[in-house]
Design a protein around this nucleic acid. Structure first.
Lengths: 241, 241
DNA sequence: GCATATTTGTCCGTATGTATA
DNA sequence: CTATACATACGGACAAATATG
């Protein structure tokens, strides 16, 4: 355990563990790997070799396997028996299904705008501002992240832990598609102004208008992403397996 | 592995593995444990000792840990660091949140009744019939199970894998509350006729009426469960920890 | 199509840290 | 405060499945 702690510190994990509540190694490893996947460091389709990760992180195979199982459970990885784990590749049906979920959850949350606390709306505004700032600096990846925060904050209106958790995972899954389509700018830039418009409607606490606007927003986003996605898939990977 | 297979067969696992696609031991163990928990064999609050389960199932410690981590991820178990896993005890807030999710998901599904295929409606009817049959035989536990199927089938109207999966887990989680309140009859019997009424509205493809009815249904169910739950908690466990 | 190398799936043993009686 | 029971994590081993030449 001493050596393990040293290695954990080396890859920048010690803070969480040292300062606030500790957690098991497997969970921390899962966090690291989840970040790597959602930020696009591992491209969908990539095979993850246990050996190399074990070596890189300085942990035992068992611990890694626990972590990978969790991520497979979150649908970020696909576990093929006796073949190993791969970063999941979404089908277009998967993408459509994720948007179906988003429409239902986000619209339901928006309908609660009347009863939502001020802080919940403030969180949405913060995310919008975060995106605009990132756009000014041309950091399109961060614009994407801010966009996730924006929609996560929208779900926060419902005041439900379960829904927030679900949304978090849904967006993480959807990110798998973004990393196949590599042009972050064209994916997210169009939505900066629409985020701002939606925010205005929410600040006016107009549930009906907000729901309508959000529905169109998501319809457009789905259409655009699906288009870019099928294009990218054709190019990047003629043989999918 | 030979001995392991023999033991697995002994606890009735061989079918799935032999007939349709194989899966890893950890996943099969997770299935067994999930069933045990959702059917109430392990009561919420129970501490699960790795050693005894490992022995009972004839598997290695590590394999069990993979399985338990998954169930903790599904919120059926709670992992306390260095203390082990416990069957989760829902708070009343947890129950309320689960109903919030149900209202959103199930109502959204019901709104899709216009576009739903006949088979989806048939599945709902089958579940209603299943419940009525179980009630005639006074098998109240099975009535509860049929009720889960009924609501699961309702979500099937939306035609979304993700939502069905979410609903499945939400209901599994909610079952933790049912097992604290032990009177299955009083919990489920009142809803047999309401299931039938709701079914009628759905068969008439009247989305508005169905949503209204379902909302009242869930409000009542929540109120009733919360009442019975707080009563049961007071009695059964003066000290909760 | 076959022999070989690689990788996964699973088990066992063990050392160390942590919580509780 | 000590003892004990238990969880955490590691390493090694080997069979089975899969990829490779």
């Amino acid at each position: 355990m001493g050596a393990d702690k040293a290695r954990a510190r080396a890859i920048g994990l010690a803070r969480d563990q040292a300062l606030l509540g500790r957690s098991s190694t497997a969970l921390r490893v899962a966090d690291v790997m989840r970040d790597r996947i959602t930020e696009g460091y591992f491209i969908p389709g990539t095979r993850l070799l246990e050996e190399s990760i074990v070596e890189a992180l300085g942990i035992s195979r068992h611990t890694l396997r626990e972590a990978l199982r969790l991520l497979a459970h979150e649908r970020l990885l696909v576990h093929k028996l006796n073949r190993g784990v791969f970063v999941r590749r979404l089908t277009t049906d998967d993408v459509a299904d994720l948007f179906r979920v988003r429409r239902i959850i986000e619209c339901a949350a928006v309908r609660e705008i009347g009863a939502a606390p001020k802080e919940a709306i403030a969180a949405i505004r913060d995310a919008a501002v975060e995106g605009e700032a990132a756009a000014r600096e041309q950091h399109w990846g961060e614009v994407g992240t801010a966009n996730m925060h924006f929609h996560q904050a929208i779900v926060g209106l419902a005041g439900s832990h379960h829904l927030e958790d679900l949304m978090c995972r849904t967006l993480a899954e959807l990110r798998l598609a973004f990393h196949v389509v590599r042009e972050a700018r064209s994916l997210f830039e169009p939505y900066l102004s629409r985020n701002r418009e939606l925010l205005d409607t929410l600040q006016a606490r107009d549930a009906r208008a907000a729901e309508k606007r959000l529905t169109r927003y998501l319809d457009d986003a789905e259409r655009q992403l699906l288009h870019a996605y099928t294009e990218a898939e054709k190019k990047e990977s003629p043989a999918n397996h």
